[in-house]
C-alpha cells in the first residue's frame, strides 16, 4: 500500500513489507545522521494532549533534521480545549496550519477520529491504553538491529499489558512477523485485553500467559518490560494492589540466555533494577535512540520523499 499520505493509527494497519521498507530507510538515516532539506516545505504539528518526553522530542528532532517546521503544544491547558473547544475543531485548525499531524491523547480512538476529520495524514503518538504504532515500529527496528531478524525469536512482554499501549502495540507488531513464541507475563489484574488475545489467536501466533518472569526467563531472547501505567487506573486502590509486583534484577537475567536483551519503551520507574542499566542485557537506551531515525523514515515516507 505504501506510506505516502497515509494515516498511522495502528501498527496492524501495516504489512511486514511496509515495515521492512521503513526499516531500510531508518537504516539510511541512522548511518547518515545530518540535517536534510527533504521536508523544508512541511509544517509538522505536534498535538500532545498528554505528557510525553521521548515521543515528542524524537518526533521534533526527526522533523527538524528533515528540514520541516514544527508547531504544537504539550498539554490541553495551553489550548482552547481548556476553554471548552471541541477536539474536532482543534483538529480542523491543525489541519489548516500543518501538513502532518502527530497526536497523543488519553482517550482511545482519538487518532482515528482526528484522521476522519483531517485531510492531512495523522500519526498516532499514543491514544490512551490502545495504540502507540510508532513506538512499536522503533521497538521492532531495535530487535532487527540487535538480532538481525524479528522472526524465530522468543519474546516475553512483561508488566502492565492491560493499560500499556506500548506493550499492546509491540504484541500487535510481532503478529506481522513470525515470532517463535510470545509469553505475556503480568500480574493477574494486568493481563492483556481480550482484543489483544483475540488478535494473537486470529493471526495464529503461539503465545502463553504467565505470572512470573522466573518461570519463562530461560526460554526468552527478548524481554520487553513495561511500567505499570498508574495514570490509567480507574481506581487508585487497584494500583496500590499491583504496584511493585514485578522487578527485573541482574540476578534474574543471569538465569537467561547469554544473548538475552531487555527492551523497555521508557519511562521506567522501579521495574528494572538500576544495576541492569550498565549490563550487557540493557538495550533500552539504544532502543530510545532509534526513535529519531525511525520517525525520520516515517515522516519522509509519508511525505513521499526518500533520502
Amino acid at each position: 500500500m505504501g506510506f505516502q499520505g497515509r494515516d498511522v493509527i495502528s501498527i496492524l494497519d501495516f504489512t511486514r513489507n511496509d515495515l521492512e521498507e521503513l526499516f531500510e530507510v531508518a537504516d539510511y538515516y541512522l548511518r547518515n545522521r545530518r540535517a536534510y532539506t527533504l521536508l523544508q516545505d512541511y509544517v509538522v504539528a505536534l498535538a500532545f494532549f498528554e505528557p510525553s518526553t521521548r515521543t515528542r522530542l524524537s518526533f521534533e528532532t526527526a522533523a527538524k533534521l528533515l528540514g520541516a517546521k514544527v508547531i504544537g503544544f504539550t498539554s490541553e491547558e495551553g489550548t482552547s480545549i481548556a476553554k471548552g473547544e471541541s477536539l474536532a475543531d482543534t483538529i480542523r485548525m491543525l489541519d489548516a496550519y500543518a501538513d502532518i499531524i502527530v497526536i497523543r491523547h488519553r482517550y482511545e480512538g482519538t487518532a482515528l477520529f482526528a484522521a476522519e476529520i483531517a485531510e492531512d495524514p495523522v500519526i498516532n503518538a499514543g491514544d490512551g491504553k490502545q495504540h502507540h504504532p510508532t513506538q512499536a515500529m522503533l521497538d521492532l527496528y531495535t530487535v532487527r538491529r540487535l538480532f538481525g531478524t524479528i522472526d524465530g525469536l522468543t519474546y516475553a512482554v512483561v508488566g502492565d499489558l492491560r493499560y500499556g499501549r506500548a506493550a499492546s502495540s509491540f504484541i500487535y507488531g510481532l503478529t506481522l512477523f513470525k515470532p517463535r513464541k510470545i509469553y505475556l507475563v503480568s500480574p493477574p489484574l494486568l493481563r492483556a485485553r481480550p482484543e489483544v488475545l483475540e488478535t494473537l489467536r486470529e493471526r495464529g501466533v503461539k503465545f502463553e500467559e504467565a505470572s512470573r518472569v522466573d518461570d519463562v526467563i530461560e526460554d526468552v531472547d527478548v524481554l520487553y518490560v513495561t511500567r505499570i501505567q498508574k495514570e490509567r487506573f480507574p481506581d487508585p486502590i487497584e494500583y496500590e494492589r499491583v504496584k511493585g509486583s514485578y522487578r527485573i534484577t541482574l540476578k534474574l537475567l543471569e538465569k537467561g540466555k547469554r544473548e538475552l536483551k531487555v527492551l523497555h519503551p521508557l519511562p521506567k520507574v522501579d521495574e528494572i533494577e538500576p544495576a541492569v542499566d550498565s549490563s550487557r542485557y540493557a538495550a533500552y537506551f539504544t532502543q530510545a535512540s532509534f526513535g529519531v531515525p525511525v520517525r525520520m523514515a516515517l515522516l519522509s515516507l509519508i511525505a513521499g520523499v526518500r533520502p
Binding site: S86, L87, R106, Y107, E108, G109, F113, G128, E198, R232
Partner: peptide, 21 residues
C-alpha cells in the same frame, strides 16, 4: 462501554462504530 473511548466524549458528538468480529 469503555469510559475513555473517544465516542464517550459528549462534546465531540461522534457516532459509534462497531464491527462484527
Amino acid at each position: 462501554p469503555n469510559p475513555t473511548c473517544i465516542t464517550n466524549r459528549r462534546r465531540e458528538g461522534l457516532v459509534t462504530r462497531f464491527r462484527v468480529v
